[in-house]
Design a protein around this nucleic acid. Structure first.
Lengths: 224, 224
DNA sequence: TAGATTGTTAATCGATTAACAATC
DNA sequence: TAGATTGTTAATCGATTAACAATC
């Protein structure tokens, strides 16, 4: 899609997933610092904000290049730009929401995706009572039109918020349409073929791991 | 709060957080198997369902006791009961929702928490226009009444869904009221003192780590 | 230049997996 | 009993942290 960002001959595959998962947090913190007018930050200061050791921050960044200056630290604006580039956040990503029930509606009306460059461009549902309705500024389309919608709008991400019983089936269809990134809100862990990314938003699992600590005394440190 | 569940003299602290985080998934899978009428399952079969190695499942379970029979496997009902007990899921947990904006409303109307033993018993907001309103069967109370509400309803978990600017402040107050488990929906990582558990539900972070793989070719295996 | 902080290598730590004796 | 699978120990793997030479 876009070029690749591995200057020193590093293979993409060498970057651990856990490192990639931290980069968006770095972007958040740097954006915040920028908004506060901070121009330069060192790994120590970033580490405090992020609750991560300075060594880890430097190590993480080293997978992608050299972004700091010895004796100084990192220019906030510069590092932010670089990380956004690496994460593909300079591109606008078109997103289709499949499932316009209670949860789907909340997602379609949630204003938190667009500021980060994610455009909800289509809403789909299989319930004839819902198709045609206007939700979050979009006309709900039948799921049967998925392939067409994906092509027409250049959709590369699907947010799936359908009942458990339909989730795996819907995700299979989404994958068939060429989608390679899925955000799933159903409380199951759907199977996807290699090369397809999926993340599950599952608040009940989070609650259920916390009750362990509530029931068995003591808590963790800073959570995770 | 309740008794502790470490038969062989195991210290609570020895169980890695990552293991605790997997237990709710085991519970899910076992519930599903039970619903399908499966009575016995071995670590191999569980591993396939969960996309985890059989060795890991056995290792994880061994932190808590011996639940299987050599040559047979695990009785689904029995293991499920044990894990629910360990996770504290036999208790009913009372939950307060702080923040009754769009997101808070979606949460209060979401039917997915109660079936798992979490009771939403109070809704609080600081907006005078919202206080007094009925949402999800609850009358919205002012945040100033938090301490009283926590005591009266024996609340031990807070779901916080307030704007970023207020999140840290609200969470500080929640902690002051004695809450030790927090589910935060604001897109920041609030600081909490040791002994307090917090989980952040942050779909934008999930999307932003997926764009990395979209922008830089290839995907991961089965997601995470 | 002297002081500070990066980038990177090596050491440590912890989690996952393999292997197998115990045992149902 | 023979076969299967657990529970557990030891080996491996990978991620985090410490340390320090390079360098701004």
């Amino acid at each position: 899609m876009t070029g690749n960002f591995f200057p020193e001959g590093l293979e993409r595959n060498e970057v651990p997933d856990v490192v990639v998962a931290r980069l968006p947090q770095y972007v958040r913190t740097l954006s915040q610092l920028l908004a506060e007018g901070v121009q330069v930050a060192n790994s120590q200061q970033l580490g405090e904000k992020l609750q991560i050791t300075p060594a880890q921050i430097r190590k993480d960044l080293s997978y992608f290049g050299r972004f700091g200056k010895q004796g100084r630290g990192y220019r906030v604006q510069h590092l932010l730009d670089e990380l956004k580039q690496i994460l593909g956040l300079t591109i606008r990503w078109n997103v289709a929401v499949v499932g316009v029930g209670r949860l789907g509606r909340a997602i379609l009306n949630y204003p938190g995706f667009n500021p980060d460059g994610f455009q909800l461009v289509a809403a789909l549902d299989d319930n004839p009572a819902v198709v045609g309705e206007q939700v979050g500024g979009l006309t709900v389309l039948p799921v049967s039109s998925l392939a067409e919608v994906v092509n027409r709008h250049q959709v590369s991400i699907a947010i799936v918020a359908v009942p458990i019983a339909h989730t795996q089936g819907v995700i299979d269809r989404v994958v068939e349409c060429g989608i390679r990134a899925i955000l799933n809100y159903a409380p199951i862990a759907p199977q996807v073929p290699p090369g397809v990314n999926i993340r599950n938003i599952d608040p009940v699992l989070s609650l259920q791991s916390m009750t362990y600590y509530l029931a068995n005394g003591a808590g963790e440190g800073a959570g995770f």
